[in-house]
């Protein structure tokens, strides 16, 4: 593998890791607050459709982004209504939301655009175009570091940089602010938070809405950044890979970045090579596709560093009377 190929693979790794990272951080907020969310997939899908559709109609990627966030937050609120207000089963609610998004996106896309469940291809300002960082052209002639700067670090759409900035931002919010402390507490011991006179319901809804916003950005990136428009089922399991990454990272922001980069690399390799030859052994693409899930099961099994979820995760909070 020569150097330019390596740069290309890493470049595509970064692109493919972006939606995973955004969805993973979304899940991090929700699950740290004690609300399991297996509907990352559905929220991303709804956001991808809404942003693809509204960007196509308005011609602006920014309006698309806003619509994507809106659609995703609506599903988040539905999840909140079911699992926080009515204390329903969070996992069942998640399953329902995934199907709801899978069905509704195609139904509405067909009704609006009559293109077999897709949105029209986005042109020009309908997409987030690559941003050239300062001096990218000038520095590109420097050996090794030049291409790394001009091709790997520069030249992505703004949402890629947003996703990366979200990592320290998430860390700061969760571990250095009062809101973050309370949010983590509500995922570990909601009764204690309640005793302190802080609203468990309010905190959990806040977490769920943040989760919706981030999933919205992730979905918008799929339809208006990574690709040009929405196609049926375009999330293709990314929400579940993000969930896997979240467990792999043991619900920590920086490790979420590493896990998503690893899973992004696997996707980039699977996309580029049908059969990867590692030391004379042909690795089929199917193995590369399923490796994130296999690794997550291994981590969950606790053979390599046990993953312990937030203690109150999945349990609806019932106030004592």
């Amino acid at each position: 593998m020569d150097f330019p190929t390596l740069i290309q693979i890493l470049d595509s790794t970064l692109r493919l890791a972006t939606p995973l990272l955004l969805a993973c951080l979304a899940g991090l907020f929700s699950e740290r607050a004690g609300i399991f969310d297996i509907a990352l997939e559905g929220k991303m899908l709804a956001a991808a459709f809404a942003s693809g559709a509204f960007a196509a109609i308005s011609g602006s990627a920014w309006i698309g982004l806003a619509a994507g966030i809106g659609a995703s937050v609506m599903l988040s609120l539905l999840h909140g209504l079911a699992s926080i207000t009515f204390r329903g089963n969070q996992l069942i609610s998640g399953v329902a939301i995934n199907f709801l998004a899978a069905g509704l996106t195609v139904l509405v896309a067909q009704h609006w655009f009559q293109q077999g469940g897709r949105t029209p291809s986005l042109l020009g300002d309908g997409r987030f175009s690559p941003i050239k960082l300062p001096l990218a052209d000038t520095l590109s002639r420097i050996p090794v570091l030049g291409p790394i700067y001009s091709e790997l670090i520069s030249g992505h759409s703004i949402l890629v940089y947003v996703a990366i900035i979200c990592v320290p931002a998430t860390w700061y919010v969760l571990f250095r602010t009062r809101f973050g402390l309370r949010l983590r507490a509500v995922g570990e011991n909601p009764a204690a938070v309640d005793t302190a006179g802080i609203s468990v319901v309010g905190l959990r809804f806040a977490a769920v809405v943040i989760c919706g916003v981030l999933c919205g950005v992730a979905g918008a990136y799929l339809a208006t950044g990574l690709q040009a428009g929405f196609v049926k089922d375009m999330t293709a399991g990314r929400g579940f890979i993000a969930l896997a990454a979240l467990i792999f990272a043991k619900w920590r922001p920086w490790f979420a970045l590493y896990a998503c980069l690893l899973f992004g690399l696997l996707q980039a390799l699977a996309l580029r090579y049908q059969n990867l030859d590692i030391a004379g052994i042909a690795v089929p693409v199917q193995l590369m596709d399923t490796l994130p899930y296999i690794l997550t099961v291994v981590i969950l099994a606790g053979f390599v560093g046990r993953a312990v979820p937030p203690r109150a995760g999945g349990e609806p909070y019932v106030k004592e009377r």
């Binding site: 209504l81 079911a82 009515f86 329903g88 969070q90 609610s93 329902a96 939301i97 709801l100």
Partner: peptide, 9 residues
């Protein structure tokens, strides 16, 4: 699924 499962209450 939503009504019989999650929104049962």
């Amino acid at each position: 699924i939503l009504f019989t499962g999650a929104l049962d209450n």
